[in-house]
Simulated assay, not measured.
Amino acid sequence: MYQSILVPVDVVEKELTKKVLPHVEYLAKLSHAKVKLFHTLPVASAIVNAYSFGFEEFQDKATVQAEKWLNELINTIDLPKETLSYAIAFGNPRDEILTIADELKPDLIIIGSRRPNISTHLLGSNAAAVVRHAKTAVLVIR
């Protein structure tokens, strides 16, 4: 059914990730699918403007922290470790999720979504943007 599943996760949204993982495990086990976890680190304009003051060092530290968290997360997932991988990007989460989805062409994207609040009504959520623009099936978990 599924050969490849993309799972966008957020270091800040650990509770939401805990809700998503059982669905990932279940569907990946059923299909023997490979799972790619994906985390996007934000790039604030202030950080970019501070490039000359060590942006590369900040980027390296942020990447190391994200990799540590993703490796810890992978160790909690009840799937064969050879079927699990991760990727990290800097940028806008919805744009980066759609970009990696276009590159990897997964059969399914499983994404968590928080309960909408005023900012998501005004700005839109990452999950809503992925659902609207993805070229593959998207499963949204609340």
Rank of each mutant, 00 (worst) to 15 (best):
K34N: 08
V35L: 09
V35G: 04
K36T: 14
K36M: 14
K36D: 04
K36A: 07
L37Q: 02
L37V: 09
L37G: 00
F38E: 02
F38P: 00
F38M: 03
F38Y: 11
F38Q: 02
F38C: 04
T40A: 11
T40C: 11
L41W: 04
L41T: 06
L41N: 04
P42C: 05
V43G: 01
V43K: 05
V43A: 05
S45E: 14
S45P: 05
S45M: 14
A46S: 13
A46C: 09
A46N: 10
A46K: 15
I47S: 08
V48R: 10
V48H: 08
A50Q: 15
A50V: 09
Y51P: 02
Y51G: 13
S52N: 12
G54P: 00
G54W: 04
F55G: 00
F55I: 11
F55S: 00
E56S: 13
E56N: 12
E56F: 08
E57Q: 14
F58K: 03
Q59Y: 05
D60H: 07
D60T: 09
K61S: 14
K61L: 13
A62V: 09
A62T: 07
T63Q: 06
T63F: 00
T63G: 03
T63V: 07
V64G: 01
V64L: 13
V64R: 14
Q65I: 12
Q65M: 08
Q65Y: 06
A66K: 02
A66I: 09
A66G: 11
E67Q: 13
E67V: 05
E67I: 07
K68M: 05
K68S: 01
W69R: 05
W69S: 10
L70N: 02
N71K: 14
N71C: 04
N71P: 03
E72Y: 02
E72M: 06
L73Y: 01
L73Q: 03
I74M: 14
I74W: 14
N75A: 09
N75L: 13
T76Q: 14
I77V: 15
I77D: 06
L79R: 08
L79S: 01
P80N: 04
P80K: 07
P80G: 01
K81V: 12
K81I: 12
K81E: 12
K81A: 02
K81W: 06
E82L: 00
T83V: 10
T83L: 10
